[in-house]
């Protein structure tokens, strides 16, 4: 069973929960435009398959990512235990400024929780990841997870640590004739 990446994306783009979502084959793709400040930011989100057999394919999708959401299932410890291997991939296959956000999903199943918030938070802190717990089912914090990732990427651009328009960093400056400031469309990948 998946940790809920496709459900998170679906919840974010359609604001609906898919109760029986099939395993993702390879990669899927979703977009949404969000507003931050008075800028429109278009998010291009790649939903990769979590099953091991697709890893050879999904690895190619880190390349263009400005941010990555790494998801585990708080009700299954083994999904949490796998994180470090996914993190290695994420680190090796992206550029150093890629924002990596750790997501513990399925908070609606509190009774079956196997990974505490504190433990995961500590892991995130140690590895320099942003962290949040969500529920694709209730929608709790789903919006925040994606929007915060986008904000962080945006912040990095303002700070100058990401330079838009470089190849393969997933961020491109676009000049809007109406607005002089550059909104930034990050690409994001989900993994785990």
């Amino acid at each position: 069973m998946g940790v809920g990446k496709s459900c998170l994306l679906h919840q974010f783009t359609e604001r609906k929960f898919m109760s029986d979502c099939p395993h993702t084959i390879g990669v899927e793709f979703g977009t949404r435009i969000i507003e931050a400040g008075n800028q429109k930011i278009k998010l291009q989100i790649w939903d990769t398959a979590g099953q091991e057999r697709f890893r050879a394919v999904t690895r190619s999708y880190y390349r263009g990512a400005a941010g990555a959401l790494m998801v585990y299932d708080i009700t299954r410890r083994n999904t949490y235990n796998h994180l470090s291997s996914w993190l290695t991939d994420a680190r090796n296959l992206t550029n150093p400024n890629t924002v990596i956000f750790l997501i513990g999903n399925k908070t609606d199943l509190e009774a079956q929780r196997e990974v505490t918030y504190e433990e995961a938070k500590q892991f995130a802190d140690e590895n320099g990841l942003l962290f949040m717990e969500t529920s694709a089912k209730s929608g709790e914090k789903v919006e925040d997870a994606f929007v915060d990732t986008a904000r962080k990427i945006h912040q990095n651009i303002l700070d100058g640590s990401i330079e838009p328009n470089m190849a393969d960093n997933g961020v491109t400056e676009k000049r809007d004739t109406l607005r002089p400031a550059p909104p930034n469309p990050p690409k994001e990948s989900c993994s785990c």
């Binding site: 880190y62 390349r63 296959l93 992206t94 550029n95 150093p96 400024n97 990401i162 330079e163 470089m166 190849a167 393969d168 960093n169």
Partner: peptide, 9 residues
């Protein structure tokens, strides 16, 4: 040929 910024990825 170039990859990401500073050759990463």
């Amino acid at each position: 040929t170039l990859g990401g910024p500073g050759g990463n990825p």
